[in-house]
Simulated assay, not measured.
Amino acid sequence: MALRTILTVGDETLKKKCRPVTEFNDHLHTLLDDMTETLLESGGVGLAAPQIGILRRVVVLLDVNKDPEEVIELINPEVIEMNELEQTIEGCLSVPGKYGYVMRPTWAKIRAQDRNGNWFEREGEGIVAQCFCHETEHLDGHLFTEKVTEYVEVEQE
């Protein structure tokens, strides 16, 4: 495993749409392992492949609601269901130090493939639902800053 550099706002890679994963092989497994290590080191909740310069539809995130050490791997993910939106504060590893109010669902269901290509569905509430949406938007070249209604100051621990 290796730590990858997280790209920040201004890098054009973050604005590009990612291609689907079609090969489920050792290269993909290494990417997932590297993304997991990078995410855990960053202190974030989710990481999408374009944030490390890889234009593939791959996401890793932590299930902070159930088991904060469980990493959820999502290949070719799509949000297939969500409930009402509410205003919440959001940040992003690719936009360091910036936080703002965005509208996100309190519950969402995602459909994705695992590292071996098997399809599955998973539900998430709160920050996990928010993360499903945030990270899949990265795969289409969007940052949360496009949705911010107001920026806020957040104290760092």
Rank of each mutant, 00 (worst) to 15 (best):
P68E: 10
R111D: 01
E157A: 14
P105K: 02
L7T: 12
I54F: 10
I75C: 09
D26W: 05
P96F: 06
W107V: 02
E90M: 00
V128L: 14
E84T: 09
I89D: 01
T149R: 02
L40A: 02
K98M: 14
E70H: 13
K15M: 04
I6P: 12
G10S: 10
L39C: 08
E70W: 02
I80H: 03
A2Y: 03
V45S: 07
N76C: 10
F24Q: 10
R104M: 04
N65H: 08
H134I: 06
H29S: 11
E81V: 00
K98H: 13
V152D: 12
L62K: 15
L39I: 10
Q156P: 00
E123P: 01
G10E: 05
H138I: 04
L61Q: 13
L7S: 12
L7W: 02
E84H: 03
R111V: 02
V128S: 09
G91N: 01
E125V: 06
V71E: 13
L61G: 02
G100C: 04
D26C: 00
E150Y: 10
V154S: 13
E73F: 12
V21A: 08
N83T: 11
T149V: 01
K66F: 06
Y101A: 07
A2N: 15
I110C: 00
L28C: 07
T5M: 14
S42P: 05
E123V: 04
T22R: 07
N116G: 08
E73D: 08
V64W: 07
N25G: 09
R111C: 04
T30N: 11
L3V: 09
R57E: 13
R115T: 09
Y151L: 10
G124A: 04
R19S: 15
Q130W: 03
A112H: 02
G97P: 04
K109C: 01
E84P: 05
L93P: 10
T22D: 13
F144G: 06
F24I: 12
L74N: 05
T30L: 14
K98S: 11
H27W: 04
E37V: 12
W119M: 07
F132T: 11
V79C: 06
T88W: 01
A2I: 03
L32R: 10
C92M: 08
